[in-house]
Amino acid sequence: MASLKHAARRIIEEVYGKGRVEVLDELCHPGYVSHDPLTGDADIAGVKAYVRLLHACFPNLEARILAIYAEGDTVIIRWHMEGNLARRLLGVEPRGQHVTLEGLTVSEFEDGQLVEDTSEWDTFGYLRQLGLVKPLGSMAEAEEEERSGAFQE
């Protein structure tokens, strides 16, 4: 179990934190699949492409483990990542926006190899920090102002 925790830790710290995508070839089963709320389902090549994009857009990306749990062939990691946007992403021009993310990843192993992982993280908060969406409170206030006639000429 300790070796599975170590492998899952390496995915967060080395792959995501340092951009060392070659670690995936070492730790993952060839049929590996990742499930993510933003990118959807991806194989090893897709995860490598996503990590490269993250590091191109957030060259100072930091990743750290907040907690790690293991039971049988399943490892659950609670993680934190942050960095400053330095390249256009999702149509957003970089202005040095500081973005922080926290989430959970459930990793499933077979015979010591990672076969599948599912991540759940604050995707809405990420898009909000990039300026792509507004919090509901702001939208609700705007609707109320519109209904009250504040926007009428």
Rank of each mutant, 00 (worst) to 15 (best):
K134R: 07
W121F: 07
L66E: 13
F124N: 09
A70V: 12
L114P: 01
F109G: 01
E108T: 11
G137Q: 11
R88F: 10
Q129I: 05
L114C: 02
P94E: 01
L85V: 00
W79D: 00
V133R: 00
G83I: 05
D111V: 02
L130N: 02
R64Y: 11
G96R: 09
T118L: 10
E120T: 13
R78W: 08
G83E: 04
R128L: 08
L85Y: 01
H98M: 07
V99C: 05
L66M: 09
D122P: 05
P94F: 02
R87N: 06
E62H: 12
R88Y: 11
L114N: 01
L85S: 01
V133F: 05
E82W: 09
T118I: 10
Y69Q: 10
V115K: 01
M81E: 13
H80C: 12
G83V: 02
L101V: 13
L104V: 13
E102T: 13
G112R: 03
L89H: 04
G131D: 00
H80L: 15
W79P: 02
V106D: 13
H80I: 11
R95V: 07
G83T: 03
F109K: 03
T100D: 14
G137N: 13
E82P: 05
K134Y: 09
I77Q: 02
G131K: 08
Q129W: 06
D111Q: 14
P94W: 03
I77S: 04
K134I: 09
G137T: 11
Y126T: 04
I65W: 03
L132F: 06
V133L: 09
G137C: 11
L101A: 07
L104G: 06
Q113P: 11
E93W: 07
T118Y: 12
N84F: 07
T74Q: 05
E102Q: 11
R87S: 05
V115M: 11
E71I: 06
N84V: 01
T74S: 10
L101T: 06
L66C: 12
D117Q: 10
R88E: 13
L89N: 01
L114W: 02
T123G: 05
V106P: 09
E110F: 10
E71V: 05
G83M: 05
M81D: 07
G131Q: 06
G91H: 03
Q113D: 09
G112D: 06
Q129N: 06
L90I: 07
G137M: 10
A86G: 11
L89Q: 05
L101C: 09
W79T: 01
A67G: 15
S119I: 07
L127D: 02
L132Y: 06
A63E: 03
L90P: 10
F124Q: 14
E108W: 12
M81Q: 07
R78Y: 12
E116R: 09
L136D: 13
L130K: 00
E110H: 14
R88N: 12
D122H: 02
G103K: 04
W79K: 00
Q113Y: 15
L127N: 00
D73M: 03
T118R: 14
V99E: 02
D111N: 12
H80S: 10
D111S: 13
R88Q: 13
D122A: 02
D122V: 01
G131Y: 02
L130R: 01
R78V: 15
W121I: 00
E110C: 15
A63C: 14
P135W: 04
L130G: 03
T123M: 13
D117I: 00
S138R: 15
G137W: 13
L85C: 01
E110W: 11
